[in-house]
């Protein structure tokens, strides 16, 4: 499988932008968690740990407090 990480990053960007989040905020948040958004595109191999980490970020933001 490839491209899942890129897909989840795009989903997170879309989700947080809808809540008026800044692009810089999210990208820095990802970088500080060891995920460089610029390193992933549609052809990037899926790292299961990164996929799980991104899925948790999406779930956390949807769940809020």
């Amino acid at each position: 499988m490839a491209g899942k990480v890129h897909e989840l990053i795009e989903e997170l960007v879309k989700l947080r932008s809808a809540g008026s989040g800044s692009d810089h905020f999210l990208r820095a948040h990802l970088m500080l968690n060891g995920i460089d958004p610029n390193e992933f595109d549609e052809a990037s191999a899926d790292d299961p740990d990164v996929v799980a980490q991104l899925q948790k970020m999406i779930d956390d933001f949807k769940r809020k407090g």
Partner: peptide, 28 residues
């Protein structure tokens, strides 16, 4: 755009990353 948070943390505990990860994960 209308709210800002202030966070003050113990400086010797080593839990700052966990705290900031939670705050940055659940809210903009």
């Amino acid at each position: 755009s209308r709210h800002v948070g202030i966070v003050l943390q113990d400086g010797m505990l080593g839990t700052e990353e966990a705290m900031m990860n939670t705050l940055s994960s659940i809210s903009n």
